[in-house]
Design a protein around this nucleic acid. Structure first.
Lengths: 214, 214
DNA sequence: ATAAAAGCATACATGCACGTATGTAAATTT
DNA sequence: AAATTTACATACGTGCATGTATGCTTTTAT
């Protein structure tokens, strides 16, 4: 009872990813023993070393699967009509928060990313991908803010770079803190008012500073 | 050349804390070897085990020293006159960001806390203190927002709980992201416009949802 | 049907970081 | 001045997670 069919092998891989996400959340990535992951998945360490090179590659695969939905949102939004750029940003943020509020796996994902993981050089590929994703997201949002200024939705004095930094920080902070206490408030219900609060501030009194060179 | 005077001993302890902060930032807390910390401080592991029980206690001491300034700000603000509650919140946030922008040790602290540390059960005391500090901070800010509503600085419909969550998330997000790229923009110069943007939104269109039971 | 390869399980070797035990010299105490 | 404690350095033993090597079936290709 050793060798499985191709289909069963993929199932094993999936259960390994699911088990890894759970154990990472419970023990932290660095403190997780691959034997724990294997046990949780109902296999041995041999299976892990067959599917992945080491823990870093396993973590990378877990992250890749977890960030897929959010990236899909961004890609979808980039193709939508840009008649109302601010609404696009709003929708983007709402979808992201809804995804977090509704899917336990996404919550586990961000819990690990934010609180159960050390971004050191051994996880360099994950860090690089995170940086690239963030840069792409920031760039896309800033572009939308620039269009909003052009449309007259935001004041001409708006520093779109800072506005983007603030928006991104707000989203990161909301997710960072909410996953610590998902029961502290109903994120799905409160996402709209929370977002509209910041976006209203943006329209009324946008940031006007200059980014530093460097 | 072994035994030092009491004064020198305290100096050794300080240099251990400083070295630990550096190494934690470079390698991550979990991956840090106490031998690295000792070497960086110019002593041996024996010195660490004399001053601290283990790595967890060392990390706890590092955190305690690092969060002192921020706690001092909160304590100071709680005693100030409350004629202008919103201005108090604003000042509080500005001081915190200024502290981060100006002090390299504070930047290292938050870099470790946000990106180089796994909050698992082995660091339970630190987690507990973090939770307590956050709860105290949130409670204090919400109280100020409630006073702001009473003063007429914020609309009567304001959900002060959500406003506090949003404010806290904003601050956390700003610090979380800025320490990743301190040179991306001048935090000291941009803190004011960034904060005023959110506070303006709060005054114009405050969140009105209800927190969930639980 | 036979060969090759996939999909793991099992066994083994290795290093490394930890905690402790002990040594030791200077600094206190009395 | 003797005794005691302090503040480390050094040496030692230990476990444990890792990576690899190998074995064993069952698929899949031919």
């Amino acid at each position: 009872m050793v060798k499985k069919t191709r289909e069963e092998s993929l199932a094993t891989r999936e259960s390994l990813l699911a088990a890894a996400l759970q154990v990472f959340r419970e023990r932290g990535v660095a403190h997780t023993r691959l034997s724990d992951v294997a046990e949780r998945a109902g296999v041995t360490r041999g299976a892990i070393y067959w599917h992945f090179k080491d823990k870093a590659e396993l973590f990378q695969a877990v992250c890749a699967r977890g960030t897929l939905p959010v990236e899909a949102l961004l890609a979808e939004a980039s193709q939508s009509a840009q008649r109302d750029p601010l609404a696009t940003v709003r929708q983007l943020a709402l979808m992201a928060l809804a995804q977090l509020a509704q899917h336990p796996d996404t919550q586990a994902m961000f819990d690990v990313i934010f609180h159960k993981c050390e971004f050191t050089e051994e996880l360099a590929p994950v860090v690089a991908k995170n940086d690239a994703d963030r840069a792409a997201c920031l760039s896309q949002v800033q572009s939308l803010f620039e269009q909003a200024v052009a449309c007259g939705q935001l004041p001409p004095t708006t520093d779109t770079f800072l506005a983007t930094q603030g928006m991104h920080a707000y989203m990161v902070g909301l997710m960072h803190e909410w996953v610590l206490n998902p029961r502290s408030y109903d994120l799905a219900a409160c996402a709209e008012p929370l977002l509209d609060c910041y976006l209203s501030g943006l329209a009324i009194r946008p940031p006007v500073c200059r980014p530093a060179a460097g």
